[in-house]
Design a protein around this nucleic acid. Structure first.
Lengths: 339, 339
DNA sequence: CTGTTAGCGCCTTCAT
DNA sequence: ATGAAGGCGCTAACAG
């Protein structure tokens, strides 16, 4: 009485070949996605039969034979960081538009975990690797170069491997220049971790703007810290603790830091936008939705993602820098006359 | 003069066999990860040789032969939603601890894209599928059941396929009960999209708490909307527009909604925690770091992830519900005497 | 353009 | 416990 329950057998080239009266290799060739599709009689028929039967190429068999898999691996520290999620989604879109599939692995901030995750991805026969994890002192890119694994770095670089970056120097300049143009002279900068190229470049750009304006930023107004909200909160608390040395504006090298600074400002009784101006970086979607919408420097994730895929086989030293855009919002305003 | 640059040939079982003087099949058996490792002389030697040579199993060949791949596919609408990123990272951890690999695909809110992404994952020969996308009216789970694809739903259910959920009813009750216990009587509820089981269950739980306390919630204080910040902002603006009907507390069925409500409250000149209490849901890390830390109901993502993997082959109708935890913070306080 | 043939690297009977 | 042999499904040389 029980209904028959076969494990539905999967359709192979053999089935399609049999059903359309040609050989397996003919079908294989016709269904090859890498070549321009033939417009012959048989080709059309075979394609139709394959479709009717619901044929799907067995990626393992195909990959085994071809040696390539049509997939790339993406390594990020964590996806719960919105910046990394945005970066990955952009890579996923760029990959899809090229007919490849992006596989992600997360590895936290631990170099050992980074190696492990890399091997895991390589074991899955990815055709290339995109890393959003690079530290300036990282040895992983070097080992990938030595092993001739096609790869590209995004957002951060080790200075050697092909890298698709945002123009962090210019972005830092935009942010600082925006504050300068609003009349601020007492400006603090909170940079990210010093081992990231992005933190250094954003600070360098900000310094250029300050120099141009003849503004001197005392060293206690430059804080190097993590990239998390709590780091921004701590740095902000420090900056706002002494009313006599309090800056009228803060450039935080990332939106999370900025959000932490905003919280610190409120805790110190300061009105963000009025008493203190704050600029973030990356323009994560949340930035625009905060109670006081955050001025931020928008990173061109899609452009960076596309470049990264282009750079997979590029020679050492190749770097692209996507120009960011300053998005002014309510968190920054002209310095108050009282300033 | 140029250094020889071979494409480093990859080590296969054949190489290991040759180097250790046994047959390929012997090596294959010894290196089989599914069986308890043998402690024989040869076994040890072979393992050592494999290690020295840097042997790594070719997953394509192995998968082709074995028919299973040691990987599961995870489908989420987007990873830029922190809740989904948390869910995926939890699944990734749970999978890793079982020696399997989690492959993610994003599909937005489009059912057609959901089908496409599902096929993409199945094409990659995943051994099972975890979906965080289910709508109550979704036909995808049904089609997976029909095709006998091992799968489990997380966070949301269609009511049929095996599902690993949070106990949303209880969580909704906790949130509402917390507000009731603080003395609030004028409470509004902002639920998520009505096609999600989570939105309905959270509202049902809240209603239970209100009923117990004999509190009547007028229908214009129950708003069904999206799950994004802007939805919360709009709903909040509506709730706070008329001072005469303004609630003293709001339960938002998700932290993003709550963040939007907070922004709306501030825009209406209300002091969150003092003038109006707000509870969120999921307790994303950001919740604790906001200027006014947000009371939220913490979802047990790790537990849900582990259950989901257990449920992959479970019979239709199996459901687990992980108990959430209310985390009280500054966004909720006793109703003011003036209330 | 088509078919034949020979593997890709691995796993799994089957026989020893 | 080991080795020999066959084949998973597909593709790439080679002929026609």
């Amino acid at each position: 009485m029980a209904e028959e329950q076969h494990e539905r057998r999967v359709v192979t080239l053999k089935d399609v070949a049999a059903a359309s009266g040609v050989s397996i290799s003919t079908v294989s060739r016709i269904l090859d996605d890498r070549t321009r599709p033939s417009r012959s009689q048989t080709a059309d028929r075979v394609r139709q039969v394959a479709d009717e039967l619901g044929y799907r190429r067995n990626m393992f068999a195909s990959g085994l034979r071809r040696g390539a898999t049509g997939s790339i691996g993406v390594l990020v520290p964590r996806l719960t960081d919105n910046v990394m999620a945005l970066m990955f989604e952009a890579i996923e879109r760029a990959a899809r538009s090229r007919g490849t599939f992006a596989v992600v692995a997360t590895c936290g901030d631990d170099p050992a975990d980074e190696r492990r995750a890399t091997e895991t991805l390589l074991d899955r026969n990815v055709d290339g690797l995109v890393l959003a994890t690079a530290r300036l002192d990282d040895t992983l890119p070097a080992s990938l170069r030595e092993r001739r694994v096609p790869h590209a770095l995004v957002l951060r670089t080790d200075g050697v491997s092909p890298s698709a970056l945002g123009d962090d120097e210019e972005g830092g300049y935009f942010a600082a220049r925006h504050l300068v143009d609003l009349g601020h002279r007492d400006i603090a900068v909170i940079t990210g971790p010093w081992f990231t190229s992005s933190a250094r470049a954003r600070l360098a750009g900000a310094r250029r703007a300050f120099d141009e304006a003849g503004i001197d930023v005392p060293e206690h107004h430059v804080i190097s810290t993590g990239y998390g909200i709590e780091s921004g909160n701590a740095a902000g608390a420090l900056l706002f603790s002494d009313p006599s040395t309090r800056p009228t504006a803060v450039f935080a090298a990332n939106d999370n830091l900025a959000i932490g600074v905003v919280a610190a400002a409120r805790a110190a009784g300061l009105d963000v936008g009025a008493d203190v101006s704050i600029v973030g970086y990356n323009d994560i979607p949340l930035a625009a939705m905060l109670p006081v919408p955050l001025t931020s420097v928008r990173t061109a994730f899609d452009q960076i993602a596309a470049s990264a895929l282009d750079l997979l086989e590029a020679p050492v030293g190749t770097m692209t820098r996507a120009l960011p855009t300053l998005i002014p919002r309510a968190s920054t305003a002209a310095v108050s006359a009282a300033g």
